[in-house]
């Protein structure tokens, strides 16, 4: 297991855990919840990450990406 932040571009992973934090409800509403599949689209400035969750494309700050534990499943 690693964090979403460490996922390579093009890799697909399943979310295992989302750490407790103020944004957790919002993250859940955006689809970032345990069991959801995420695809890493791009690595941005200052550790930000661009991911695809289902139909949505989300931009996350480094600290948000670090708070999500994932298990890599495949590469697109």
């Amino acid at each position: 297991m690693s964090t979403l932040h460490g996922l390579a571009v093009g890799a697909v992973a399943r979310i295992c855990e989302v750490a407790e934090q103020p944004l957790r409800v919002r993250m859940t509403a955006m689809g970032l919840r345990p069991g959801a599949e995420v695809a890493m689209v791009a690595h941005g400035a200052r550790g930000s990450r661009l991911v695809r969750v289902g139909d949505a494309r989300l931009a996350l700050a480094r600290e948000v990406a670090l708070s999500i534990e994932v298990e890599a499943t495949r590469v697109q």
């Binding site: 103020p22 944004l23 919002r26 993250m27 955006m30 930000s48 661009l50 949505a56 494309r57 989300l58 931009a59 996350l60 700050a61 480094r62 600290e63 948000v64």
Partner: peptide, 8 residues
Amino acid sequence: REPLLIEL
């Protein structure tokens, strides 16, 4: 001061 979390 919320960290970046937006939908594109």
